[in-house]
Design a protein around this nucleic acid. Sequence first.
DNA 1: GCCAACGTTGGC
DNA 2: GCCAACGTTGGC
Length: 139
Amino acid sequence: MAFWLVKSEPDAYSWDQQLADEVTPWTGVRNHSAKLNLQAMRVGDRAFFYHSNIGKEVVGVVEVVREAYPDPTAEEGSPWVCVDMKAVSPMPKPVTLAAIKAEPSLAGIALVRLSRLSVQPVSAAEWKTICRMGGLKGA
DNA sequence: GCCAACGTTGGC
DNA sequence: GCCAACGTTGGC
């Protein structure tokens, strides 16, 4: 199983909406690096749900329930794809960007190094560390 | 194929 | 509101 991190501005789509919707088509990605990451996702992979701009924190965990398919919000014939995400669990204690930056073992994380990438891989070690910081057990 | 100009993202 | 990072566009 692989781990990821997806970003959303809470103004556009928040964790609360994800919880209410349960399953969300993760559309609107218009960046090629992010697209490659979407295409690499497999059913059962987990991702952190991160609030950018407002909050700047990891607020929950989602799971891939459908692998990449053409993004219905993109122009016909364009290469953009989306996946379907399902809410798994909120972070008991949201993990802020400041906390991630302050944690030496997370110095290499893509969230810090590639701050503009909206869909990014997370290593197993990084996953474990952030789950522990967020008070999430067994994820 | 290079590079300047411009737009967007996202932290501060 | 500003600015850094980065992607895209268009002139040459």
